[in-house]
Amino acid sequence: MLAAIQYTDFSFPNVEKKQRGKVRDLYFLKDRLIMVATDRISAFDVILPRAIPYKGQILNRIALHFLQRTADIVPNWVLASPDPNVTVGKICAPIPVEIVVRGYLAGHAWRQYKAGHRMLCGVPLPEGLHENDPLPTPIITPTTKAHSGHDEDISKEEIIKRGIVPAPLYEQIEAVALKLFERGTQMARERNLILVDTKYEFGLHNGALHLIDEVHTPDSSRYFYWDTYEQLQKEGKPQKQLSKEFVRQWLIENGFQGKEGQRVPTMTNEVVEDIMRRYMELYTTMTGETIEPDPSLTTEALMKRIESNVNNYLETEQLLLT
């Protein structure tokens, strides 16, 4: 198998704290954050046992692609990307809700709808919809940001009532999220894709709202192909999609949804390679660029490359600051 990063434990200079997320390893300096995008993959809020080669690099590059192209809507946390797997940025105080914007009835929303629910996070859903149908207008379905375990659906009213986010700030967040979704929809259409749904995370830096983490990547978004959407929908067939939903479907088909007592099915080399191929396909579709796998690159060499690139960046920045 190709090189893949499951975990990191770098000793970058002046690191004050290390933190491991679901798929990213974070290194906190006094005035900035080093985020290493590993090749871990999670689904149903569970980290799967095998890493996917090139996944971290792909997600990092796609996130940067969109963060650069949405900075006119809202500032974001990014300062630099010294390595394909690494982003360095501002340390922001995270706002403890994820803002999920949905333009179509898919994924979690469809599973809730199919179960008979017609209210999702306080938002009413019309009768008569089918899986993957467009919604009348994009809706926002927030979730609480859990440190571990499953995130939970929550309504706008409950967020404000509990004091999780002050009302004026939350109104600003929703307005910005809809503008981001509109921009993402436009950019997807230019690449023959439909942005079905996505999630945004926000934080505050010096009191100003910032977009943090990733944006419009296949880990945080779902995409359909524009040119086949109507025909497949008319025929009642599954949509061809490029997102992490295919991983969730594979897990569901093999008896796993992250529930207590369930075990993650065996990830064979074929499964890992298929997931990698789909991530590469999305990257090329989204950006027009390609990544050529390097079979000679070892995991050890990959780790050394990241460490060297980050250390060179920090050394340069230190020289510039003195």
Rank of each mutant, 00 (worst) to 15 (best):
A3M: 08
A4L: 13
I5Q: 09
P13H: 03
E16C: 13
K17D: 05
Q19T: 13
Q19W: 11
R20A: 11
V23T: 09
R24C: 11
L26R: 14
L26P: 07
F28I: 00
L29H: 03
L29N: 14
D31W: 04
D31G: 04
R32H: 01
I34V: 02
D39F: 05
I41P: 09
R50L: 08
P53Q: 10
Y54G: 05
K55E: 06
G56L: 03
I58V: 03
L59G: 14
I62G: 00
A63E: 05
L64Y: 14
H65R: 07
F66W: 14
R69C: 04
V74L: 06
V74I: 14
P75M: 06
P75T: 00
N76R: 06
N76F: 03
W77P: 02
L79F: 07
A80S: 09
S81L: 09
S81G: 11
P82D: 01
V86D: 00
T87M: 08
P94W: 07
P94R: 03
P94E: 01
I95D: 03
V97D: 02
R102Q: 07
L105M: 13
A106C: 13
Q112E: 14
Q112G: 07
K114V: 15
R118N: 12
C121R: 06
C121V: 03
V123W: 12
L125H: 09
E127N: 15
H130W: 12
E131P: 12
N132R: 13
L135H: 07
P136R: 11
P138R: 14
I140K: 11
T141R: 09
A146W: 03
A146D: 04
A146I: 04
G149P: 08
D151Q: 02
E158R: 14
K161Y: 10
K161V: 02
P168V: 09
E171D: 15
E171I: 06
Q172F: 01
I173P: 10
E174C: 15
L178H: 02
L178P: 04
K179G: 09
F181M: 06
G184C: 08
N192C: 11
I194M: 03
V196R: 00
K199L: 01
K199S: 06
F202C: 00
H205L: 00
L211R: 04
L211T: 10
I212T: 03
E214M: 05
T217A: 12
T217K: 11
S220N: 12
S220Q: 07
S220E: 00
Y225L: 15
Y225R: 04
W226V: 12
Y229M: 00
E235V: 12
G236S: 08
P238N: 01
L242S: 07
S243R: 14
K244D: 01
K244T: 09
E245T: 13
V247F: 07
G255M: 13
E260S: 06
G261I: 00
V264R: 07
P265E: 00
M267T: 02
N269Q: 11
E273Y: 11
E273K: 15
D274E: 08
M276D: 13
Y279I: 06
Y279G: 15
T284I: 12
T285S: 04
M286W: 13
G288N: 10
E292F: 07
E292H: 10
D294G: 08
P295L: 00
S296W: 15
L297Q: 08
M303W: 09
M303V: 12
K304P: 09
I306V: 02
E307Q: 04
N309P: 02
Y313N: 13
L314G: 02
L320N: 01
L321E: 11
